[in-house]
Amino acid sequence: MPECLKPMKRQHLKILVCVKQVPDIEAIAHSDDPGTWAKISESTGFRMNRYDEYAVEEAILLKEANPGTIVDILSVGPQRANQTIRRALGMGADNGIHIRTADDEYLSPFLIASWIAAAVRSRDYDLILAGVMSEDGMHGQVGPMTAEFLGIPCATSVVASRISRDCASFQVTREIEDGLKDLLLLHFPAVLSIQSSTNKPRYPALSKILRAKSLELEVIDFDTFDVRTSPERLTEVGFPQKTRSGEILQGSQGEKAAELLRILSRKIPIR
């Protein structure tokens, strides 16, 4: 056994996956009042953060490779977030924990991580998985912050992880820039933040969806946690500035197509 690994307490794993429900980003329009965090119109749909789908998939793969493994799902969010937890259960996870917040207020990664850590501190997870980043907040912080609150190691941008059959060694591959990969040996317990990769997140199976629908989620109210303020504050929400002219082609589809060819022919050769 590699010296750096603490032996496992048991022969199977207990895994937690943190999933976030995010709005359909395409549905967000400029006409929305940019004054607040989540002025999202009624019609906007919600879905699971895509990186979290990869994290759930990674957990289910580990479960399949290490029978007896338990996969729990946790989400911090308003009432509707329970749909995202249920989707993860439909993918094959075992239990759901919902830290329920007030409706759609902005929550900093610091607050979310501190609540997750407080909720799971005594639950003895061997492995906590998060997505590398949320598509709405784009912080990339909740995973590594949770690790720090729990005092355990963390690896981010993970594209592959492997646990030996006896659960004694645990190797992860982080994707870094320039086409390079960083290989690490980690100690349990640990937090991994999962980057999208060639693992294809599975669709929930019908039988599992039915089970997920009837399963009772554990609900924790956010106001049971002591920490309420963050070291930083959101003061404004707006739209990015243009860095180029951004001319918008007008006309019918055919007119636009002809105009595009005309413009391109002035820039580069066309066959």
């Binding site: 709005p23 980003i25 967000i28 940019p34 598509e135 709405d136 907040g137 784009m138 963050s230 070291p231 930083e232 504050r233 959101l234 003061t235 404004e236 929400v237 707006g238 739209f239 990015p240």
Partner: peptide, 13 residues
Amino acid sequence: IYNGKMTHTIVSD
């Protein structure tokens, strides 16, 4: 934020 569609302004306390 939002895959680049909007922006946040943050101050530290």
